[in-house]
Each structure stands twice: as structure tokens, then as C-alpha cells.
Amino acid sequence: MAPLNGTRVIPVGWSAHHRPVVEGSFNLACEVWRPGDGPPPFGQDEAPAVLVWSGQCRLQQRATGDGGKVVADQAVQVRDYLAVLPYEVLALVRSGEAGDVLKAGGRSYMILDALQGSELWECDLMLQSTDGG
């Protein structure tokens, strides 16, 4: 069934209208860091990381079965996480192998992917713990 003539199922501005609602659920201080580019300064092993964003977010472990993998004949515990940040952060973050790192609650997480869609009111990031948990 089609909507009435001259109407839309999802009104213009719907996502922007709902952004303050989701941001009200953020309960954890988070930072997004970008690994340093270029050569490290003299006497250091790595180029310094750059702070990309700092603010509140929501973090939860994803239910992905037992979380175990076998890598090089060794059982490895892998935990995936979902971080929800303000929508505006989506344009700032890099994901993937050379992606940014999210730091929250005293732990670090590699940003694997940033979820996209046609109606967005939050920045959803798929993460993997780099602290072994």
C-alpha cells in the first residue's frame, strides 16, 4: 500500500529530530584516536597518535556465538563490540586495518567498520578489543 499522495512514510528531518534522544542514552566517556602517520620522532618507536574526537558514547558487547576462533592452530577468544556515538562522528572516523582506535572504560578497541544507512541518527561502530578481552 502506498502512502497518500503528497505524503511520505518517513518525514523529512526525521533522523535529525531523533538524534538528541539517542544521545541521552550515552553513559561512557570515549575517545577516538588515530595512529600517527609518518616516521616516528627521534628515539620513539611510533609516531604519536592524534585525538580525533572525545565525548560520551554507549558501548556493548555483541552476542556473536562463543566468540572463539582458531588462528594458526591456536584457539583465540575474540569479542566484538558495538559503540554508539553522536551522528557527527561518522564523518570523522576511519575504519578497517589502518583505522582509528576507540578508547573507553580503560580499554582500547579497533574500529572495524562504521555502519551506514539512508536514515541515521547515530554513529554505529563495529569494534574488536585490542586488550585481549
Rank of each mutant, 00 (worst) to 15 (best):
H18D: 07
P86A: 01
E122A: 05
M1V: 12
E23S: 13
L120C: 03
D124T: 03
P86W: 03
P41D: 06
P35Q: 10
Q61F: 13
D45T: 08
V9C: 08
R19D: 13
P3Y: 00
D131N: 06
D37Q: 09
L82K: 14
D124L: 07
I10Q: 10
T130V: 11
Q77H: 02
E97Y: 07
R62Y: 08
D66I: 04
D66L: 11
E31G: 15
S129P: 01
Y81A: 09
A49Y: 08
L82F: 09
S118Q: 06
V50S: 11
V12T: 15
V101E: 02
R19M: 11
A29E: 07
T64R: 11
Q44W: 02
R79C: 02
T64N: 08
Y81Q: 10
R107Y: 13
G68T: 14
A63T: 05
A91I: 00
S95Y: 14
G55Q: 02
M110C: 00
V84P: 09
E46H: 15
D131M: 01
R62A: 13
S15V: 00
R19Q: 11
G68M: 12
N27L: 12
A104R: 05
A114I: 02
G99N: 00
L120W: 00
P35E: 14
Q116E: 08
L102W: 12
Q74F: 02
P35H: 09
R79Q: 15
W53T: 02
S25F: 12
A63I: 00
Q74G: 00
M110P: 03
G65Y: 03
L115S: 09
M110I: 02
I111K: 06
Q77N: 07
S15N: 08
Y109A: 11
D73A: 01
K103L: 06
N27K: 14
S15W: 05
L82H: 02
L127K: 06
G43D: 10
V76T: 15
L90E: 15
T64Q: 06
F42S: 12
W53K: 04
C123S: 15
I10T: 10
Q128N: 10
A91P: 00
Q60F: 14
P48Q: 00
A49M: 10
Y109K: 03
V52H: 08
G106N: 04
G13Y: 12
Y81R: 11
W33Q: 00
T130A: 10
S54Q: 14
E46I: 12
D45L: 13
K69T: 07
P20R: 04
V89C: 09
